[in-house]
Nucleic acid binder design. Structure first.
Lengths: 207, 207
DNA sequence: TTCGCGCCGTGACATTTGTCAGGGGTGGGG
DNA sequence: CCCCACCCCTGACAAATGTCACGGCGCGAA
C-alpha cells in the first residue's frame, strides 16, 4: 500500500474540527497532519506540514476560507483544496472555484461521503454538489458593483445612513444612491431585505 | 467494566453529526445508539433506543433544540440532555436550563473535552461554560414582551410594516408601537439593529 | 377595588429612507 | 474619438419609519 493522504483541517469551531479529524482518521488511507482554527494560519501550517489535501471552512476569523484557498494554491500548488462549509450559498461555490478550489462540499452531506470526496480531490477530480452547482448557474454572479457590496456590508449590522457615510467616508446622498441601486438590483423593497438577499447569495464575502 | 453510556446525537448537519459520532465512538465507555437530523424526531428516536445522554444542537429544523430538550425531559426523565451548539447566545443558555438541560457546550470548545462533558452530565453533574454563564448573568433575561419579540421575529427577513401587520393580523400603528418599544428596550436606533441585538442575545428563539 | 402592565388601536408629527433627475470625474473598449 | 460603466456629489420629493400622546380592554397583584 502507498503512503496515506495527508490532510490539513481548517475550521473555526474546535469541536467540529476535532470531530472531523476523528471521522477521517478512521479511514486507513487518510491521516490528519494539521489542524488550524483561523484562515490566516492555513498557509503557514501547510508550509510546515506539506499536506496533500486541505479541507477549509468558508466562515473563519482572520481570513475567510475562499481567500485562504487562493493563498494556499498560490503558495503550495501541489496541495489540493476541498471547501467544507455550512452554507450552500451560490456565490460561495463560484468564488471558491475562481480561487482554485478543487471541491466543494456542504456540511449536510452524509458523513460517509466525505472521505470519498477527499480521495477524489486528491486524485485530481473535481467534487461539486450537483444541486448547488445548478443553483449557482441559475443565480449567476453578483450584479452588485464594488461600492454597492461595500455599502451593503456596512449596512449589515443596522446603522443609519449617517453611520455608513461616516464609516465609508462618503456623502449621505451617495450612500443612499448606492443603497437604492443595490435594492433595485436585488429586487428587494428594503435596505434590510437587500442585505438579506445579498448575504444568502454569498455576494457579501470579504471584509 | 460497566455498560457503556448510550448516546443520542441530534444535529441538522449530517457531516458534523457523523463526525461527532466518530469522535465519541473513540471512547470505549461511550456508544452512539441513535442519530437524528431534526428536532421533532428526537423524542421518537429516544423512545426507541433509550439513550442515557442526548446531545442536542439548538439550531434544527422542525423543532429547535431547546423545545426538543423540554419534550425529551418530559418523555424520558432518566435521559440527560447536553446542549451542543454553535452560538453562545446568553439567552440560549438560560432557556436551555429552564427547559431542563443538564449541560451546555459551545462548538468551539476543544474536542477532547466533549467526552468528559458527556460523562459528567451522565454522572448527574451540570456542565456549563463559565464564561458563557457569567455573560448570561450579566445580560439578564429578555426585556421584551411576547408581542415585541413576535414582531421582531417577523421583521427579521426585512419586510415593510404593512407586511408585518398583515402577517400578525395587527394594525400598522400597533406594529410600529411594538417596534418602537423594542427599539427602545434594546437600545437600538433602528428596527434592523434591534433585530440584530435581540438575535445575538438569543431573545428571538421559538417560531 | 385600585393600580400597574401588557396589549390593541388611533391620530399626528418629525425624521429617515428610497427615488429620481441632474452634474462632473475617471478609465476602458469599440 | 466617443460611449459606457462606475464613481461621487447635490438637491428635491414621496413614502416609510420612529416617536409621542391618547384611550380602551383584560388580568393579576397589592
Amino acid at each position: 500500500m502507498t503512503e496515506p493522504i495527508k490532510l490539513l483541517l481548517a475550521d473555526d469551531q474546535a469541536l467540529v474540527r476535532g470531530a472531523l479529524a476523528a471521522l477521517l482518521s478512521l479511514e486507513p488511507d487518510l491521516t490528519v497532519v494539521a489542524e488550524v482554527g483561523r484562515g490566516d494560519e492555513v498557509v503557514a501550517e501547510a508550509r510546515r506540514t506539506d499536506p496533500d489535501v486541505a479541507l477549509l471552512d468558508v466562515e473563519m476569523p482572520g481570513l475567510d476560507g475562499i481567500a485562504a484557498a487562493a493563498a494556499l494554491r498560490a503558495a503550495l500548488p501541489a496541495c489540493r483544496v476541498l471547501m467544507v462549509t455550512t452554507f450552500g450559498r451560490p456565490g460561495y461555490l463560484r468564488r471558491a472555484m475562481e480561487a482554485g478550489a478543487n471541491g466543494f462540499v456542504v456540511k449536510d452531506t452524509p458523513a460517509r461521503q466525505l472521505a470519498e470526496a477527499v480521495r477524489r480531490v486528491h486524485a485530481g477530480l473535481r467534487v461539486v454538489d450537483p444541486t448547488l452547482a445548478a443553483e449557482t448557474l441559475a443565480t449567476g454572479a453578483s450584479p452588485l458593483t464594488e461600492r454597492e457590496t461595500g455599502v451593503l456590508r456596512a449596512a449589515r449590522d443596522g446603522g443609519t445612513v449617517a453611520d455608513l457615510a461616516g464609516a465609508l467616508h462618503l456623502s449621505e446622498g451617495t450612500v443612499r444612491n448606492h443603497l437604492s441601486a443595490a435594492i433595485g438590483k436585488t429586487g428587494a423593497r428594503n435596505r434590510a431585505e437587500a442585505v438579506r438577499i445579498a448575504e444568502q447569495n454569498g455576494w457579501l464575502l470579504g471584509d
